[in-house]
Design a protein around this nucleic acid. Structure first.
Lengths: 174, 174
DNA sequence: CTAAATTTGTTCACTGGTGAAATATGAGTT
DNA sequence: AACTCATATTTCACCAGTGAACAAATTTAG
């Protein structure tokens, strides 16, 4: 596969040419958008790749991690959908898969019997604890050469961007 | 769906709790990684959403845009795979779809008859020119409130990150 | 100059993810 | 109590993307 740097160089030239034909294009913002999408996708692929030896995919892993990070180790499909940005349909599949592997349990809620309570099992916790440490070196080295100030700056800019996106999704037709 | 800000808040707390149980986790870098993945995915969904009225998806659109941005308006499946980060299999499907809509043509190469030459049609160019302008306001407002310095900084940090990722993919076993 | 190796693209079978309808529980209204 | 209406989850049918096997054309090595 082509190196990311080459893809970026190609994108830079491409946007340059397009913005000559269509001058009112916001070229700087378009470049930033494409950059973010490309780097984000590459990160995504790297995560998927790193998880592959453990035979788990990104969305299943994320779901399990949310449960692991909860004080009580439990949640509901609906809540997990919100925080994983997955549709309810897919959460059913994810839960099926994780139950099958014995990493979570699924049971009916007492208070509201429409609800399903999902809970991480001891085996699920052990799985997470075994899986995480080998990922640390890659996570660290992705940000190799970043000063503390650069990390803070990157974090701030991403959060600012997130704020903008939230506002865009609210505004359209009130 | 939950607002991105809420997901981020939840992620911050979650990583905080996990890093107490697993102290040698690179928490700062893990947060940055999750942030980038979340913001990147939200951008992706926004693009997909914005393209939906035109009945075209992100990868088909990106493929068409690369052709549009080329001086000669042509390329080959292999090259398009590299720059779109798509597998060859999926590029076959994309090309089929775009040919069906009359936006590109697909023909055998003269020099090397293994190769297939893909070329954007006048209809394809018109389609792009009609499709792009309505996207501009959204692209601009995603970066609303970003100073020029912040945009430059964001661009620089993303490119630096891209460089790191390229180096990681090369290094493993030399 | 031919035989093996490489490159290019396609087909097939499968995994992952989504929208629309179905199901089931709960809550509010008369 | 019966009648909506809303909420939570699952089922079904479909779209998007991937790895493995394949076919065709070209390059390389003997």
């Amino acid at each position: 596969m082509a190196r990311l740097g080459d893809c970026i160089a190609m994108m830079d030239e491409g946007i340059g040419r397009v913005s000559q034909v269509i001058p009112d294009m916001p070229a700087t913002e378009a470049r930033l958008t494409r950059l973010l999408l490309m780097v984000g996708q590459t990160f995504d692929e790297a995560v998927e790749q790193a998880l592959k030896p453990n035979k788990i995919n990104h969305s299943d892993f994320l779901t399990l991690m949310i449960l692991y990070s909860r004080p009580d180790g439990s949640s509901t499909p609906g809540e997990l959908c919100e925080y994983t940005s997955q549709g309810a349909t897919n959460m059913t599949r994810i839960a099926n898969a994780l139950v099958k592997r014995g990493l979570i349990t699924r049971g009916a809620s007492e208070e509201d019997r429409r609800r399903v309570v999902i809970r991480i099992t001891p085996a699920g916790r052990r799985f997470v604890q075994k899986l995480l440490p080998p990922l640390f070196p890659r996570v660290s080295s992705a940000f190799a050469g970043f000063s503390d100030a650069e990390k803070r700056s990157f974090s701030r800019l991403l959060r600012k961007l997130a704020g903008n996106l939230d506002r865009l999704d609210e505004a359209p037709s009130p």
